[in-house]
């Protein structure tokens, strides 16, 4: 990755608006489940930072394509569309621009599912695995009784 990409300013305002509209449609917030929308400030910042490092140009081009698609197919601005229609247009790009669809989907879930609020809603502590680790029950090795009863299965030579 080049220094230019790392120090670049990131997405322009127009792209940010489109991305925000898309993310709120892909991942609608749900108070009952305690999850924020995909364009929640912390998630959005993480997504933008991740894109900035590795895929700025490709994502910017893809967002431009998404805006054009909205204009061509529906004669509307992308961010004025309803959430289900935004999702539908994004899904169309799965076949027309797989790299954009794949990268943005991947970055979105990576950032969303490591967000504090999302992890807490899943009953997880918002922390890395190390150093605390996790508890896993040892389990009941008596489950092996039928396997033991059957006896040797390795082949003699």
């Amino acid at each position: 990755m080049s220094d230019e990409l790392i120090t670049s300013d990131g997405l322009n305002t127009e792209d940010q608006t489109t991305l925000s509209a898309l993310l709120s449609a892909l991942l609608p917030g749900n108070e009952q489940l305690g999850v924020p929308p995909g364009n929640d400030a912390a998630v959005f910042e993480d997504i933008q930072a991740t894109i900035r490092i590795s895929a700025l140009e490709m994502i910017s081009d893809g967002l431009d394509e998404l805006r054009k698609l909205a204009l061509e197919q529906l004669a509307r601005e992308f961010d004025s569309l309803s959430n289900p229609i935004r999702v539908q247009l994004f899904e169309l790009m799965r076949s027309t621009n797989g790299a954009f669809y794949g990268t943005l989907s991947s970055v979105t879930v990576q950032c969303y599912y490591r967000n504090d609020q999302v992890m807490e809603s899943l009953g997880m502590e918002p922390r890395p695995p190390y150093p605390k680790g996790h508890e896993v029950p040892q389990g009941d090795f008596n489950l092996l009784d039928p396997v033991r009863a059957r006896g040797k299965i390795w082949r003699d030579v």
């Binding site: 489940l33 959430n83 999702v87 794949g102 879930v109 599912y113 997880m124």
Partner: peptide, 25 residues
């Protein structure tokens, strides 16, 4: 959690938009 979401989204088990959170759970 991330790998679960990736698997679900890319294999069409978890939709984007409506129903996403329920399918993820």
């Amino acid at each position: 959690p991330v790998s679960t979401a990736m698997t679900g989204v890319f294999r069409n088990h978890i939709p984007w938009g409506e129903g996403h959170h329920e399918a993820y759970l």
